[in-house]
Structures are given as structure tokens and as C-alpha cells.
Design a protein around this nucleic acid. Structure first.
Lengths: 194, 194
DNA sequence: TTCATTCTATACCGAACGGTATAACCTGTC
DNA sequence: GACAGGTTATACCGTTCGGTATAGAATGAA
């Protein structure tokens, strides 16, 4: 009774989904490692899929809100992109395992249940970033409808940085420094305008 | 009897692993869609894991050899990186589904069986690319031991291009043009030297 | 003809899967 | 003292999973 069981289950699910993948992680095991029985798990989450959905919602919602705010265009593409990348970096620092789980799901098989669950989240993320380029195009002249391509590329680049940081530095607290963010954005924009 | 059953099984496995993921794809279904019974599948591949291994070997080996050749340093970092990226592009054009399967596995959960299977392939790939930077450092001065980081970044960037191409153009024949490859390499090196 | 290879059909195995039913227990609130 | 929310233990459900046992049939080479 000390801690919130529901929260513990979510935390354990995050650990296992991250380490083994959604399909390979068993409900039984999640319950056991949470110090809880299976009926308790099903008392809070009506299915394994529901568990993943709730996990994505509870951890993803704050991230999406923060990112959405950071994506507000302030008449400066470079600055806005830095803010967006900074929001991702902040989040990845606070919740490294969840961030990496998102990456894995982002690249996972399209017909897999787990991908269906992240899809709405991914779409909102893409939409927010794309909006930056849409608004920038009003200021900077048309982008020939390549906003989508730009946003995909930018997201991919930020993800790449995350994974690299994780690969070289270990799991605890992925952080991208301010200088690195500016360099990344510079590199990205240089690519765009050349 | 007309076609090679073993090859058909590999092809079907590629399709299903790609579409649904390794864990979610069932052996039974692979056998059925190959027009073959389960014992036949097990006659060629002693386990599901063995099937994945053989798939990675049969499709991956030619790719790795081609890439290895392309990674031979010719006193010109820029040119060598273009050659390496070109080898990836060629391969992705010929075998788009396999290339995308590799990407998904590359980013998948570390403790998953499937990741264990790609690991040797990934290590060889990384090693070949890293070798480019090692040899270049002899010519261009030391890189402060950042060869690994550079190779990870370069690989990630090429992968990002693949996924973007796939996302925007559909699945049949991912191709990266010569100009795009040069731009990509330029962008990457600009990032390095700034 | 013999023989190995390739493959079939069918049927089964034990284990694990996701999920549920039942019935009782604790704890705090009203 | 009644009641609701949270939780337990236990046992079970049907299904699917990866994998196998058995016994035989087609094929082509020696």
C-alpha cells in the first residue's frame, strides 16, 4: 500500500517493453515484477494493448504539450527549431527509457499492434513540427510543399542524436547540450538552403 | 515443385517479419503463405531463430561485401563516404523490404531475440564504416578518438534518408540520387569540421 | 534397384500466451 | 455497521505458440 500500484505497473511495463519489445514482454511477467497479481493489472488496464496505450498517454502527453509549446513559431525558424529540439532533449533527459521506447516503436513494423498504438502520438508530433515549416514558409517564401519532408528530416536528425548519445554515453540521462542543438539546427538548415 | 521452396520460405519470412515484426509473425503463417507445411520449414531451418539468421545471412552477406568494398579508403574521405552511401542506396533499391527490416531491427529492443540476430551484422557494418574514419585520421590528423561517433552519425544519417524516401515515395525501390548522396555527405562533413 | 533428398499429411506435444471467474479480505469513509 | 474501492489467491479458460513424431510419397541419380 505504500506506493501507487497503477503507477508501478506502468513503470514496469515501460521497463519491459523497452528492454524486450512489446510482443515479447508478457503480462504475467509485468504483473510479477510490479509485485502485483494479474487480476490487479487487469483491474486498471483492460488489456495488454490498453496498458501500452495508457503508458503512451501518461508519459507522452506531457511531452507532446511541452513540444507543442516549443513549436510555436516566433518569426525565427532557426530559433524555433532550437526550441523544439531543446524540448525533445529536456524530455529525453528526464525520461530516457520512454524516449528510447518511442524511437523503437517509431521504427517498428507498420502492421504491428504496438505501432498502431504510437501512431496518433507520432502524427501529432509530426504535425506540430510541420506547422513550424508551414508558418515559416509564410515568412521565408514557399518551400514547394516540402514541409513534410523537412519535418521528417528534422525529427529523424534529432532522433539520431538521441540514439547516438545513448549509444556512446549509456542509458542514464541522455542530454544534448545547447551548443550541440545549435550545431544540429545549423547543419540541418545548411542542408535545406544549399 | 517449380520453384525453390527454401527460397520461397525466406521470401515469405522477409515479408512477414517486415510487416508484423519478428515476434508477431508466426511460423505457421510463414509456412502457409509459402505454400509449404511446417515440417518442411523445419527441414530447412531448425528453428524460427535459425530462419531469421539464415534470412539475415543470405540477404545481408552480399550487402556487407559490397559495402566493405565501397569502404576501402582511397585517400579521399568525401569520395569514400559517397561510395559507402552509394552502396547502401544501391542495395536499398534492389532490396527495399530487407533494408527496412534491417532498420527496424537496428532500432529494436536490445534484449529481444531478433536484435541478437542482427547484432553481428550491425557490428560488421559499423566496423567497416569506422575503418574509413580510422584511415582518414592518418591522412587528415587525429579525430580525438571520435571515429566511433562519426561512424554512428553517418550510418544514422543514411538510414534517415532511406526512411524518409520510403515515407514520401512508397515502398517500391528506394533510391537516393547521386546529387542527394553528395549533398548528404557534404552536410555530414560540414557538421564534422565546424 | 537402390538410395538419398525433398516434401507431404496429419496429428500431436508441452508451454506460454492473453484474459477471466470466483470469492474473500483489508481499509478507510459515511 | 454498512459499504465501496482496491487487492488478493487460486484456478481456470481457449488459443496460439514453437516444435516434433511418424510414416509415407515423389523425384532423380547411381
Amino acid at each position: 500500500m505504500p506506493v501507487d500500484n497503477r503507477e508501478r505497473i506502468l513503470e514496469t511495463a515501460l521497463d519491459l517493453f523497452y528492454a524486450r519489445g512489446y510482443d515479447a514482454a508478457g503480462v504475467q511477467e509485468i504483473a510479477e515484477k510490479s509485485g502485483v497479481t494479474k487480476p490487479t493489472l487487469y483491474y486498471y488496464f483492460k488489456s495488454k494493448y490498453g496498458l501500452l496505450e495508457q503508458l503512451l498517454k501518461s508519459r507522452g502527453e506531457p511531452f507532446l504539450e511541452q513540444l507543442h509549446a516549443a513549436c510555436a513559431y516566433r518569426g525565427d525558424l532557426r530559433g524555433t527549431l532550437c526550441a523544439a529540439a531543446g524540448a525533445v532533449s529536456d524530455f529525453a533527459k528526464r525520461e530516457p527509457r520512454f524516449a528510447l521506447l518511442l524511437v523503437a516503436l517509431f521504427y517498428s513494423a507498420r502492421d504491428n499492434e504496438a505501432y498502431q498504438a504510437v501512431r496518433p502520438l507520432v502524427l501529432r508530433l509530426q504535425g506540430d513540427v510541420e506547422e513550424i515549416f508551414n508558418e515559416a514558409s509564410a515568412d521565408l517564401g514557399n518551400m514547394n510543399g516540402r514541409q513534410r519532408q523537412f519535418s521528417l528530416g528534422f525529427i529523424g536528425l534529432v532522433i539520431l542524436y538521441l540514439v547516438m548519445k545513448h549509444e556512446t554515453e549509456g542509458e542514464k540521462g541522455i542530454e544534448i547540450s545547447g551548443e550541440e542543438i545549435e550545431a544540429l539546427v545549423h547543419q540541418f538548415m545548411h542542408g535545406i538552403y544549399s
